[in-house]
Amino acid sequence: MPEPLFILCPGRSFSSVVSTVIGQHPQCYGLPELNIFIGRSLGECWDNDATRSTYPLQGLKRTLAQLHDGVQTDETIEKAEAWIAERRVWSGAAVMAHIQEQVGDRILVDKSPANVVHPKVLGQIVRAYPRASYLQLLRHPRTRGKSHMAAHYPKAGIKRVMIDAMGSPAPDVEYKWHSTHKMIDALARELSLGQMMRIRGEDLLRDLRLYLPQICEWLGIRADAKALAAMLRPEDSPYACLGPTRARYGANPGFLANPALDFDRLANIPEASLDGPLDWDAQAEFHPDTRHHAHAYGYR
C-alpha cells in the first residue's frame, strides 16, 4: 500500500481546497478532517472532539459512511458512530489502515488541523508514518489571520500570548501561524531529503496547472491531462458538500458551500503585506519573529 500524504498547516491556510484538489487525483483519496491522532486512541479522540462539538469526528464519520455504505445519510452516519464506539481502543494508525484497505492502492490525503496542534501529536504521526510524504502548506500570516479572526472571533476580543520569552505580546492568531510553522520546520529538518515539501498556497492556487504536475512528480503519480482534469474538479469529491445533520462538516464550511474552483478569482489572489497595522489589532504590527519567519517563506 502507498504511504499517505499529510498536509501540514495551521487552519485557514487553504487546506480544504488544496487537500481536496490533490485528493481528486485518480491515484489519491482525499479525506475530510479525520482528527484521529489527537489522542492515543479513537475513544480519546472522540471525547476530545466532543468537548468542542455536539457531533464529534464528523470527517471520520463521513469517511466511514462513504466507504462502508457508499453514501452519507443520517442512517449511515449512525452506523459509522456505532463502528467507532466498538473500536474506541483503536489507534489512529489502525483506523488509517482500515481506511486504506477500503480505498485500495491510492494515496490517502489527510489535512486534519489537529495533526499540528502540538508536537506530541505530530510526533505520533511521524513515528507511525516515517516514510509518508508531508506537504507544508503556507498562507500569508495576514490573510490567514484575517480568515481565522473572521471564523473564530467575529465579535469576541482577541487573546494575547507571548511569542517568545523576551518578546512583546502578540495576538494569538499570529502566534498560531508562527508556532505551527516553526514546529513543521523542525520536523522538516528531521525528515529525509524531499520527504517534506513546502508550497505557498497562494502560488499553488494562482497557477494550479503549473504546480499540480510538480506535486504529482514529487508523489510519483501520473501527471497526465486526465489526472489534472480530475484534480481541477474538487467539487466531485463525495466530501465536498455539507453532510447529514450529525456530520455536516469535516472541512472549511465555506469550501463545502462552494467547492468548485473559480479560476479567475484564484488567478488574482492579491499579494498581502507584512507591513502596516494588523487587520485585527490596529494598534499593533507583526512581531519581528513573525516577519522574519514569513520572509523565510518569501512573503513580504
Partner: peptide, 23 residues
C-alpha cells in the same frame, strides 16, 4: 533543497541537500 518553483520541480541532481547534508 528540493522545491516547487515557477520554473518547475527542482530536485538536486546529486540527491544531496543544502550543505551536502552538513547543516
Amino acid at each position: 533543497e528540493p522545491r516547487f518553483t515557477p520554473e518547475g520541480f527542482k530536485v538536486p541532481a546529486a540527491l544531496e541537500g543544502p550543505g551536502f547534508g552538513w547543516v
